[in-house]
Design a protein around this nucleic acid. Sequence first.
DNA 1: GTAGGGTTAG
Length: 467
Amino acid sequence: MPHSAESLLQLLQRFPKHRNQVQQIHSLIIVKGYLVCETTNGQSSSKWKSTLLYNALIRAHLGFGQTRKSLLLFAQMLSHRAPPNGYTFPDLVKAASSPSSGSPCPGKTFHAQAAKRGVLRDPFVRTSFVSFYAEYGELGNACKMFEEMSEPCVVACNAMIDAFCKNGDMDSALLLFERMPERDVVSWTSVVNGFRINQRFSEAIQFFNKLMSCSVKPNEATYVTLLSSCASLNGWEAVYLGKQVHGYLVRSEIQLNVFIGTALIDFYGKTGSLNAAINVFGQMMVKEICTWNAMISALSSTGQEKEALDLFERLKMEGMQPSEVTFVAVLTACARGRLVEYGLKLFRSMSLDFGVVPTMNHYGCITDLLGRAGFLREATEFVKSMPFEPDASVLGALFGACKIHGTTDLENEVRKELLELQAQHSGLCVVLSNINADMKRWDHAADFRKKIVNAGVQKIPAYSVIA
DNA sequence: GTAGGGTTAG
């Protein structure tokens, strides 16, 4: 029977990646009225019909990144009285964890919904909540979700390992890794990645070597994580290992996919092999915006600012949509190349022409752009005119500029103004004392340390903002 | 149907 609810459901499940088709099917489902739950005839199969269709639609829209639409579909689902089931929540919760889904995040109401519908015992549902809470920095809730599982499977354990890693608790991640009854390549990769995201790059590489010695077969994700660690470490051993991985991938005749390719470009860019990065970029059949961003950064960090900006022009011509990161990369290139006018023009056009709203990072780039070029007063004015309170990165850029341009009266003025502006800001105080210490003005450093105490700043981070 | 991967000044 053409266009029965069953046949449309099958189509959705079979071809969920074809955006236009999904939209057509969606329209057809609406026209046919299949989304309205029928409870009158009492047949259990038709009771769940709209639920299954909604589940498939939520999944399909999540699949091509339309997370907002997934969330909207859930709201519709409730208003149509189609009861969500255990299959509804994993996709829904994933949509809620996605940063593009907008705020406020509805994840917690989903938790309540899942409890109400009696699906919280489902291990798939629980695992997705573990990841959700981990993403939102609520490690306690993630643990609770995990601990209430009677016999967590390897996937649930992997999700919990990742939850620990993402929230900086590598000890617990390793403990769970040791204690779990079986491990797979995802377990290993999650730990490698955990060391990486906690900036423990040497240990990431060590753990990768351990994985190899245990005869675990790495997969693409493992290599991507490893390459990223090698890129950040940048010692000869790390560079050697990264090149070895590349060589292995070439010998295995594995086509460079977007993730691997982007990781390689980043690796070569950060370790100074610009030509290798360009080669990889040229070989890639499919490029995403991240790929272009990595290449732009590679060019700009190796002193080819003009080429970096040319590549940005090419990206636009090829119809790519620049991301937030793209603008950080191009604005940085402008700052390095002292292209003040062009940088300011780009900054103005980013929200106007590309719909990318500047974040604190972008303000930091412009502060850097002005400051490096010696426009310290303009940079200060710019910081004051920002729509949000400057954070340590913006102030770091400003002080970086002061460092380049020497100890002028203006610098002292800037310092004073900013100190008054953000006396409570522990990040700033650290920046200030670092800068002073750096300039061998230990008396001032001590002075600022005292101010930190007087200002009642509780926490002084154990890292320095200026490297 | 649940887990892990790439790009971001100073």
